[in-house]
Design a protein around this nucleic acid. Structure first.
Length: 310
DNA sequence: AACCGGGGCAACCGCCGGTCG
DNA sequence: TCGACCGGCGGTTGCCCCGGT
C-alpha cells in the first residue's frame, strides 16, 4: 500500500534500475522521443510506471546530463541562487546546464549537514556560513515577501503590472549573483551585458543603501549609432535599444529597468504604451539570466527589499 | 571476518496545477 | 463543471558503499 496511483498495476518493478532496463529506455526514447510518459513502459517493454521512466531519463539517462563533482563556480551559483529563491531546486537547476534538481537538492542537503556539524568555523576565507546566513530563505520572514515568492507566474505578472504601471518597457534580469556582497556594487557583468547587447553605457556606479532597500537611479545612455538597427540577441525574444530612467530590485533579486525604447524609426519613443519584456522567466523560455550568471565572479548578495516604487 | 554506523545518492511519495473529455 | 489523468516538483526514504572497530 501507499504506492502511487500510477504504480498500482501488477508487475510494476520498483527500486534501482538495471543496465538492461536503462538500455531499453534509452533505445525507446532515442528512437521515438517522449511525448506521453505513461505510454513509455508498455511500448519500451518495461515493467515500470511512466513516472519512474520519466525520472530515470531526466535524472540519469539524458544525453546532456552533466556528472561529477560540482565546480567551485557551480557551488557559488547554487549558494547564491538558494539564497535568492530558497528550496526551489528546479529553478536553481535551470541555471546550471546539465545538472538536475535532484542532484542539486542532494548536494545541498549533504552540504548543509556538513556545515551544521561544524558550525564554528569563523575563518574569513570560508565564505559559506556567512553567505548562507545572509542569503537563507529564512531571512525572508515577512508574510508579504513569502506570499510574493509563492505566486504563480501569472499572478507575479499582475503584481508587477501593479507595481510598475509606467507606459514603458520593463527589462528584468536575474542578478542574484551579480550583487557584490562586500560593497553593494553590481558586478560589471551587468554593465557589460547591457552594453554588448543593448548598446547601453552606464556612467554611474550601481549602489544600494545601507538597508539594501533600493538601488540608486542610474543613467544608461545608448552607445549605438542612431542609424543602427536594434541588435538581435540569441535566446532572448526581443531586445531593443533603450534608455534606462530608473531601476529597482524586486523580492527575487531581479532588477527592473524602467526605460524608454526606440520605435521602428529608431527614435526614442515615450508616447506609446509598450509591452513588458520579461527575460528572466525560465518557464517562458526567455532566460536572460544565463547571459549574466556563468562567468560572474562575485559572491552574490540578496536584496530583500521592496521595489522603490512601493 | 563480521559488524556497525554514517554519508551519498537514486528513487519514491504525495501533492499540486494543468489539461482534456 | 467535474473528475480522471498526467507531469513537475520538493520532501523523504532507504539502499549501498565504505571506513572504522
Amino acid at each position: 500500500m501507499g504506492h502511487h496511483s500510477c504504480c498500482n498495476q501488477q508487475k510494476v518493478k520498483r527500486g534501482l534500475w538495471s543496465p538492461e532496463e536503462d538500455e531499453k529506455l534509452i533505445r525507446y526514447i532515442t528512437t521515438h522521443g517522449y511525448g506521453c510518459w505513461s505510454e513509455v513502459p508498455e511500448k519500451a517493454g518495461l515493467q515500470r510506471c511512466g513516472k519512474s521512466c520519466r525520472l530515470r531519463w531526466i535524472n540519469y539517462l539524458r544525453p546532456d546530463i552533466r556528472r561529477g563533482r560540482f565546480t567551485p563556480e557551480e557551488e557559488k551559483l547554487i549558494i547564491s541562487l538558494h539564497g535568492a529563491v530558497g528550496n526551489r531546486w528546479a529553478h536553481i537547476a535551470s541555471h546550471l546546464p546539465g545538472r538536475t534538481d535532484n542532484e542539486i537538492k542532494n548536494y545541498w542537503n549533504s552540504w548543509i549537514k556538513k556545515k551544521i556539524r561544524k558550525p564554528s568555523s569563523t575563518s574569513s576565507t570560508n565564505i559559506a556560513p556567512s553567505i548562507i546566513e545572509q542569503n537563507s530563505q529564512f531571512t525572508y520572514t515577512q508574510n508579504q515577501q513569502m506570499d510574493f515568492l509563492n505566486q504563480d507566474l501569472a499572478t507575479k505578472r499582475q503584481i508587477q503590472d501593479t507595481l510598475y504601471p509606467l507606459p514603458c518597457p520593463q527589462f528584468m534580469f536575474d542578478i542574484g549573483l551579480a550583487m557584490d556582497g562586500a560593497n553593494g556594487n553590481v558586478d560589471g557583468k551587468i554593465d557589460q551585458f547591457l552594453q554588448e547587447n543593448a548598446g547601453l553605457i552606464n556612467s554611474e556606479t550601481w549602489q544600494v543603501n545601507q538597508n539594501q532597500e533600493m538601488i540608486q537611479p542610474v543613467s544608461y545612455t545608448s552607445a549605438l549609432d542612431p542609424n543602427c538597427l536594434p541588435p538581435l540577441m540569441e535566446n532572448l525574444e526581443s531586445m531593443v535599444p533603450m534608455e534606462v530612467q530608473s531601476c529597482s530590485i524586486n523580492l527575487e533579486g531581479q532588477m527592473t529597468l524602467d526605460c524608454l525604447q526606440r520605435n521602428e524609426l529608431n527614435e526614442w519613443d515615450d508616447t506609446q504604451q509598450c509591452p513588458n519584456f520579461f527575460f528572466w522567466d525560465q518557464a517562458e523560455g526567455q532566460l536572460g539570466g544565463q547571459e549574466i550568471y556563468p562567468t560572474s565572479s562575485s559572491t552574490g548578495n540578496i536584496l530583500s527589499s521592496y521595489p522603490s516604487s512601493l
